[in-house]
Structures are given as structure tokens and as C-alpha cells.
Amino acid sequence: MVAQTLTASPTLYMLVNATHILSIGLLTGAIIPLDLRLMGFFRNVPVHVIGPFLSRSAMIGVLLAIASGLTLFTVRADKYVQNPAFLAKMGLLCLGIANALFFQTIAPWRQHYDAGTKQLPARILAGISLVTWISSVIAGRWIGFI
């Protein structure tokens, strides 16, 4: 039903596609600066100030990207499940979400960064996050070329 509606309406398909792209922009636009800060860049910016806002923005972005992506998926599901780039993107998406959930379970990272204490586990998780989300975007762009 969803696939038929999208295929019948190029305008609706375009709007859902634009929503997907904007959602990815919100996700990466929030997570990249936060990851860089947690890795030690921009030390003059307190984590407790930007962390909650950026992590919530990234969460909204990923939720919107998943919702719009699932909608787009319905149009060519049979082709996507055979596309290695799509499968890589899904794996990276799962890794990124798992990393973020794990990261949230080690809440003391917020206090230590502002106190100036180095937190190697948080830096490592931020690095994994940075590489994972950027790779996910690259894999997503790769889908159309396979």
C-alpha cells in the first residue's frame, strides 16, 4: 500500500526522499561536532552545555531517517535486500545505534570531560561513532551506484 502510494505520486516520493536526506543531515550535523568534542577537539566548549542538545538532535535525526528510510524501502524492497551497499548501510546503522545506546550507559563521561579528566573509553566510543555514521552516509550514497 505504501509502495503503491509512493510510486503513484512522484511528489510524495520526492518529499519522503527529501525528509530522509534532511534527517541524515540533522543526525550527522549533530553527532559529528559532539563526537569531535568528546575526542578532545573544541575544549573551550563545555560538554554539559552542548551534549544534551546535540545527542537529542541526533536521536531525532536517526528516528526520522529510519521512518523515512523504511517508507522508501517499500518501493524497491526486493532490490535493496540484495544490494551490498544497502546491507552495509543497515549494518552500520545498527552499529551506530548500538554504540550510542552503550555510550549513554556510561553516563559519567559527561562530568569527567568538563572536569578536564581524560576518558579513554568515551573517546574511543566517540571515534567509533564518528567513523560509523560517516561510513553509513557513504554506504547510503553507494546504494544508487550498485
Results as ranks from 00 to 15, higher is better:
Leu27Ser: 01
Arg56Val: 00
Gly96Trp: 03
Val2His: 07
Val137Thr: 12
Phe86Gln: 06
Ser136Lys: 07
Ala3Pro: 08
Arg110Val: 15
Tyr80Cys: 11
Thr105Gln: 13
Met90Phe: 04
Leu70Ser: 08
Gly96Met: 04
Ile138Tyr: 05
Gln111Thr: 12
Asn99Gly: 06
Phe102Asn: 05
Gln4Val: 11
Pro52Leu: 03
Ser23Phe: 01
Lys89Ser: 03
Leu6Arg: 07
Phe102Asp: 00
Gly127Cys: 08
Leu22Gln: 03
Ala8Phe: 11
Gln119Pro: 00
Phe42Asn: 09
Tyr13Arg: 15
Ser135Val: 09
Thr5Asp: 11
Thr117Gln: 15
Lys89Thr: 03
Gly69Met: 00
Ala126Asn: 12
Ala3Ile: 04
Ile124Ala: 12
Leu12Ile: 13
Arg123Trp: 11
Phe103Val: 07
Ile146His: 13
Val2Ile: 15
Val47Gln: 11
Gly91His: 05
Gly127Ala: 12
Val75Tyr: 01
Ala126Pro: 08
Ile60Leu: 11
Met90Ile: 13
Arg76Glu: 15
Thr71Cys: 13
Tyr113Val: 06
Pro84Leu: 14
Thr71Lys: 03
Pro108Ala: 03
Thr71Ile: 12
Ala85Glu: 05
Leu93Tyr: 10
Thr132Glu: 05
Pro108Trp: 07
Arg141Ile: 15
Gly127Val: 07
Ser68Trp: 04
Leu15Gly: 10
Ile134Cys: 02
Ala85Met: 12
Val47Pro: 06
Ser23Gln: 07
Ala126His: 06
Gly40Leu: 06
Val131Met: 08
Gly69Ile: 04
Phe53His: 10
Leu101Asp: 02
Asn44Tyr: 05
Arg43Ala: 15
Leu101Cys: 01
Tyr80Thr: 10
Ala107Asp: 11
Arg110Cys: 07
Ser68Lys: 02
Tyr113Met: 13
Asp78Gln: 14
Ala139Met: 05
His48Asn: 14
Asp114Cys: 06
Gln4Lys: 14
Phe73His: 14
Met1His: 13
Ile134Tyr: 00
Ser136Met: 15
Leu87Lys: 15
Ala107Pro: 06
Ala88Trp: 10
Pro84Gln: 08
Val2Pro: 06
Met1Leu: 09
Trp142Gly: 05
Leu130Phe: 11
Gly127Pro: 02
Met39Pro: 06
Gly144Asn: 14
His112Gln: 14
Leu6Pro: 09
Gly61Phe: 00
Ile66His: 04
Asn17Ser: 14
Pro108Phe: 06
Val2Glu: 10
Tyr13His: 14
Ser23Tyr: 04
Leu36Tyr: 01
Ala100Asp: 09
Val137Tyr: 05
Asp35Cys: 05
Ile32Arg: 00
Tyr13Cys: 01
Gln111Met: 10
Pro33Glu: 05
Gly61Tyr: 02
Val81Gln: 09
Pro84Asn: 12
Ser129Cys: 08
Pro33Thr: 01
